[in-house]
């Protein structure tokens, strides 16, 4: 999925196109897990995977780590902490470097999620949150979990980074430290309360969890289920999936052809509208088709 050699990319997109067109909708829940470095995302994910495996679900995970801008190198260390699937065929774990894409998400994350969704009962994408990337992950998944760690003064940082606008579930990890975790949870609840939400809309629950002693992990799994149910009930799932498609196609085109290329098709909004209207087509098929259109226009003399 992440091979950029000429030809390979088109092959992959064709496969994904077939996969997306033939997979039954809506498919398994797609869940994002984000938070600051050191918040304990991986260990929490490990506990969560264990919990879900206990219920008999199979789980696919894509973990995204930042790359060095200068060397392109990356250390993908999450596997060390997500051990529950280490020799369990019911768990697939792939780590990826964010490479050159802004926002901290791996180029091939959306594609990988699509492949995993065809195979596993539930798929996760785990990524380091540095403020901006939250909106990127939020675009990709049905449910976004923000993992916070106990610490005074965090709230202001969270708000500054605009993080509180995105999560559907908030997990305060390391609840075993006690009072500090409770205070952080209260602050986050207050902060989320400030964000405007229409009446009747899903209010992100703030859960105290501990990957270390297992506190709240079952509750977290239950909150994920509750949010999935809510998305189906409210009819919000379909627009979320559409947004993910739009974001994927737009970014794919922009990265390759720049805003100049997008302008050939009438600009961002026009492209977004075309993706929106092409309900039957897969995002990958659309990316292929629109790429071809742009190349076609670029070749033609004006």
């Amino acid at each position: 999925m992440d091979d950029t050699r000429p030809g390979r990319r088109e092959e992959a997109l064709a496969l994904l196109d077939a996969l997306e067109r033939e997979a039954p909708l809506p498919g398994p829940p797609r869940i994002g897990l984000t938070g600051a470095p050191g918040a304990g995302k991986s260990t929490l994910l490990d506990a969560l995977v264990r919990q879900l495996r206990g219920r008999g679900e199979t789980v696919g995970v894509v973990a995204v780590d930042p790359s060095s801008r200068r060397t392109g190198g990356a250390l993908l260390g999450d596997r060390v902490r997500v051990r529950s699937g280490a020799s369990d065929p019911g768990v697939f774990f792939r780590s990826m470097a964010a490479r050159d894409r802004l926002g901290g998400l791996a180029d091939a994350t959306f594609a990988s999620l699509t492949v995993l969704a065809a195979v596993f009962d539930r798929v996760f994408v785990e990524t380091v949150g540095v403020g901006q990337s939250e909106s990127d992950v939020a675009d990709l998944v049905d449910t976004l979990v923000f993992v916070a760690q106990p610490g005074a003064g965090d709230l202001l940082q969270f708000m500054k980074a605009g993080i509180l606008e995105w999560p559907d579930v908030v997990a305060v990890n390391k609840a075993d430290v006690g009072a500090l975790a409770h205070r952080t949870a209260r602050e986050l609840e207050a902060g989320l309360g400030l964000a405007e939400r229409p009446a009747g809309e899903w209010r992100p629950p703030v859960l105290l969890v501990s990957a270390r002693d297992g506190t709240g992990v079952a509750e977290l799994a239950a909150a994920l289920d509750a949010h999935a149910t809510e998305l189906r009930r409210s009819g919000e799932l379909a627009p979320r999936r559409r947004r993910a498609r739009e974001a994927f196609v737009l970014e794919g085109l922009e990265r390759r052809y720049g805003s100049f290329g997008l302008a050939e098709l009438g600009g961002r909004d026009a492209v977004a509208a075309r993706v929106h209207d092409a309900r039957g087509a897969s995002a990958f098929g659309l990316l292929l088709q629109l790429s071809a259109e742009i190349e076609d226009r670029l070749r033609k003399p004006a």
């Binding site: 790359s67 060095s68 060397t71 250390l75 596997r79 060390v80 020799s87 065929p89 697939f92 774990f93």
Partner: peptide, 25 residues
């Protein structure tokens, strides 16, 4: 990492089965 590779660091105490699953995934 410093020479630009993507490094999956799997740490200590691995069984051969875990190493092979990791290499495949």
């Amino acid at each position: 990492r410093d020479v630009g590779m993507e490094v999956v660091y799997d740490g200590i105490r691995l069984t051969p089965a875990e190493i092979v699953q990791s290499a495949r995934d």
